[in-house]
Lab assay of single mutants.
Amino acid sequence: SFNTVDEWLEAIKMGQYKESFANAGFTSFDVVSQMMMEDILRVGVTLAGHQKKILNSIQVMRAQMN
């Protein structure tokens, strides 16, 4: 498990989005775990492969939080 959203993004090789997530207010796992595709688009993730990777990881995160 990760301590910060930045660490999580690095771990899934999506570190290039750290600033975008932070600027959009997605700075805690409570918020990130609620993200939908529209949120991912809003933070500027436009590549389908990256969207899928982030969404898949969020689903895993949700499962671990319950």
Rank of each mutant, 00 (worst) to 15 (best):
V45K: 02
F2R: 06
G15D: 11
V60K: 14
L55D: 03
E10P: 01
H50V: 03
K52Y: 09
Q16Y: 06
M35E: 01
M61D: 04
A48K: 13
E19K: 12
K13V: 07
F26M: 07
K13Y: 12
M36E: 15
M36F: 08
T27D: 10
M14N: 01
V31P: 03
W8S: 00
S1W: 14
F2E: 06
A63W: 06
K53N: 08
G25Q: 05
N3H: 10
Q51F: 05
L9M: 03
D6H: 07
H50F: 03
V43K: 00
Q64R: 09
E19N: 10
E38K: 11
E38M: 08
V32E: 01
F29S: 02
L41P: 02
D6L: 05
S20D: 12
N56L: 12
S20E: 08
N23M: 12
A22T: 08
S28F: 04
V32C: 04
S57C: 13
L55S: 05
I12T: 04
D39P: 01
G15N: 06
W8N: 00
K18H: 04
V45W: 01
M35D: 00
N23D: 11
N66S: 11
I12E: 04
F2M: 07
N66F: 02
V5W: 02
M36I: 13
W8L: 02
N3V: 10
D30L: 12
F29L: 15
W8I: 00
T27N: 11
V60A: 15
N66M: 05
Q34R: 10
F2D: 05
Q16K: 08
G44E: 03
A48G: 08
R42T: 08
E38F: 06
L41Q: 10
K52V: 13
K18E: 03
M61E: 04
V5T: 04
V31T: 14
V31W: 06
A22E: 07
Q16S: 06
V45L: 02
L9E: 01
Q51N: 04
T46Q: 11
I54K: 01
V32I: 12
M65C: 08
V45H: 00
M36P: 03
F21N: 01
G49D: 15
S28P: 01
M65K: 06
A22V: 08
E10G: 06
V60C: 14
Y17A: 01
D30R: 13
D39T: 04
E10W: 05
A63G: 13
Q64I: 12
Y17L: 02
M65V: 07
G15Y: 06
T4G: 07
E19A: 12
Q51V: 14
M36S: 14
K13S: 15
T27L: 07
E7L: 08
M36W: 08
R42Y: 09
G49S: 15
T4K: 06
L41W: 08
M35K: 01
A22I: 09
M35R: 00
N3F: 09
V43N: 01
M65W: 04
A48F: 07
M14R: 00
Q51P: 03
D39E: 05
Q64V: 08
S20T: 09
F21A: 00
E10M: 09
I58W: 02
K53V: 15
V43W: 02
M37K: 08
V32T: 03
E38Q: 09
L41D: 05
T46H: 11
V32R: 00
S33A: 12
N56E: 15
T27K: 09
V5A: 02
D39K: 03
K53F: 11
I58V: 10
T4H: 06
S28H: 08
T4C: 09
H50A: 04
W8R: 00
V60H: 14
A22M: 12
A24E: 10
I12P: 01
V60R: 11
N56Q: 14
M37G: 05
M37D: 06
F21M: 04
V5C: 03
S28D: 11
N56K: 12
R42C: 07
M37V: 11
Q51T: 06
Q34P: 03
V31H: 09
G25V: 02
M37L: 14
